[in-house]
Design a protein around this nucleic acid. Sequence first.
DNA 1: ATCATACTGTAGCATCCACTTAAGTATTGT
DNA 2: ACAATACTTAAGTGGATGCTACAGTATGAT
Lengths: 115, 115
Amino acid sequence: MLQYDSQPLDKAFHALSDPGRRAMIERLSVGPASVSELAKPLPMTLSAVVQHLKVLEDAGLVKSGKVGRVRTCTLEIAAMAQAERWIADRKRFWEQQYDQLEAYLAQASSTGETE
Amino acid sequence: MLQYDSQPLDKAFHALSDPGRRAMIERLSVGPASVSELAKPLPMTLSAVVQHLKVLEDAGLVKSGKVGRVRTCTLEIAAMAQAERWIADRKRFWEQQYDQLEAYLAQASSTGETE
DNA sequence: ATCATACTGTAGCATCCACTTAAGTATTGT
DNA sequence: ACAATACTTAAGTGGATGCTACAGTATGAT
């Protein structure tokens, strides 16, 4: 690696690469939740969930705040959108390339070269 | 982890979390390239690049084939699109939630409760 | 035949990751 | 006051990752 991975996309994609963390995000995408609510369906200790939460927060994908003894977490769509955009941008390039091929083929056949 | 990460999204997002691998994909999104072409701009050995390429292929993001001594790599948009869709789906849920809040506020003010 | 090119494969190593256990702190309920 | 709840923090472990160095193999050029 380049040994300097503080770029947002590195962290975002890394955070999304874990099924447990994706499950947490799926839960949060339908509304805010406490840490224990996030933990309930997951086959791991609360401790592990808190660590995953840290990864998500560090990636900017989730924000949280504490009221009393309960920490409430919410999705941060902005970071999600940034990751989505990187992929969409690649797709755009790829499709452009595909269009160029089609344009070439169309032009080639209309100019009529069978030989 | 759940210790069973063969799911496609795990691999795709993991593959995308490395800047070197993203650089390779950025290069491939504008057209096919050989292994050494992919390696040229990257500050690492060819060996390392080949290993990154394996990760990308294992995630289904890239396909490659060899002609003579040259291996030519191409982007596989399908796996990219799948990753993009997972994010887009979460965003959709989040926006729906947001819309519900707006609808509630609109309804609340039109029914006229100042108390 | 010889040499360069374009990979390929393996071993080794330092670091990171996803957990767990265990011990703690701060709130809330009775 | 005492117990239960909701986290929080630290230490440790086994396995994965990202890299390099080095030793190949197969193909193309002269």
